[in-house]
Nucleic acid binder design. Structure first.
Lengths: 211, 211
DNA sequence: CAAAATAGAATGAATGTTCATTTTTGTCAA
DNA sequence: TTGACAAAAATGAACATTCATTCTATTTTG
């Protein structure tokens, strides 16, 4: 089972084995290029078990989608509890995303590299799921408390997180060769300066980036 | 046939009809959820013609991919010819992308909303195609001539264009309700301020955004 | 020993592709 | 202009294969 924080249990129960195999195959070949039989083989499980546990191929995809977005949501919650300033919260989320791209390729690829509407059409779009809604709320509260300039919230959110998301995708595509955390400080600096209010002095940020 | 600048010929020749239908279906249902028979019906063409012209379903996808990226490339060339400053070139590309998202939904969705490796595995990744390579070159020359801060070029490119790309994806997903050009000035301002050299005064940019 | 879980051969629908036939197009002689 | 005719294009029924799913038999668990 693909977890973000927890360790996977050992030995993995049958449903976890199925999800682990499915995630790997989906991410590396794409949902539609993977057959149930391949999942069955890689998970070392019978076809019957798959249908018993998940009801079918789409059942696996749905379960995976929900599970992973839940993992993601817990992550965002943790960040919101540990840091109070929206700016700090954004930075921390970006830091975590950079880190997890290196340590949890499959999960990040599943979130940021798949067209989910094509295989889980009944599930909400990824940008309409809890963790992503919460991230937009953070951006809004950042504008309310004066940490971010008061601009359209879509623009603000896209500017702050568009850069990391792009970097993640390029890294997943093997275009970027260095691990993402290498670029963390530069990235934060470049992404946030554009949306910071002018009373948060620019120099301030550059110094904090150097430290 | 889906063009960015030119008008489609009328009546459309058979291979154009096929590509038009395929683009529409691929974008709205996803490559793997579309059968050759559906393309055939929508294009009002026989199965045989499809195999005669494109050799198969993957042939259609390949041809579409190449055609659309060519359209895109011409666009970038035009911008590079009409504007000399890299900053202006970036702005203009962003402006065009915003505009075309409203007027050429299918093409934009095909470029920014599809996982091409899953259905044209032999073609280069979209970020390795001419137009996108050229865009990265623009960013690099912007750093060389001092218009952009000297930071890692991946970070720079991701910061400048990550925002628009995110906005385009959100707009294609129907999350953003206003046409993208509405946000153009704000977006440019937010995306570029973070990467501008400090000798390009910040106030300058804010004033230009208000005008 | 009953209930739950697992196994996997068999099934049938979906769909990409082939190819023999028909239609259209373009050429040229009458 | 007409008609004959060959080459090219288009047609679509038939085919072959892939693959999700079902279902009965077997094994494991409590």
């Amino acid at each position: 089972m693909p977890y973000l924080k927890r360790e996977a249990p050992n030995p993995e129960p049958i449903d976890c084995r199925i999800l682990t195999a499915a995630l790997d195959l989906f991410v590396n070949s794409g949902y539609h290029n993977v057959s149930v039989h391949e999942i069955q083989k890689q998970a070392d499980v019978s076809i019957g078990s798959i249908y018993k546990h998940f009801g079918g191929k789409d059942g696996i995809a749905k379960a995976l989608y929900k599970h992973i977005l839940n993992e993601m949501d817990e992550l965002v919650d943790d960040v919101m509890n540990e840091h109070k300033s929206p700016k700090k919260q954004c930075e921390e989320i970006i830091r975590l995303l950079c880190g997890y791209t290196e340590t949890h390729y499959d999960i990040m690829a599943f979130i940021f590299h798949a067209k989910h509407t094509e295989f889980v059409p009944d599930e909400p779009l990824i940008c309409n799921t809890l963790p992503f809604i919460k991230i937009r709320e953070i951006v809004k509260s950042g504008m309310e408390c004066g940490e971010f300039r008061e601009i359209n919230s879509w623009v603000a959110a896209s500017t702050i997180f568009g850069g990391v998301i792009r970097m993640i995708q390029l890294r997943l595509d093997n275009m970027i060769e260095e691990p993402l955390p290498t670029y963390f400080e530069t990235l934060i600096d470049a992404s946030l300066n554009g949306v910071l209010t002018s009373d948060t002095t620019k120099t301030d940020n550059k110094i904090s980036a150097v430290l």
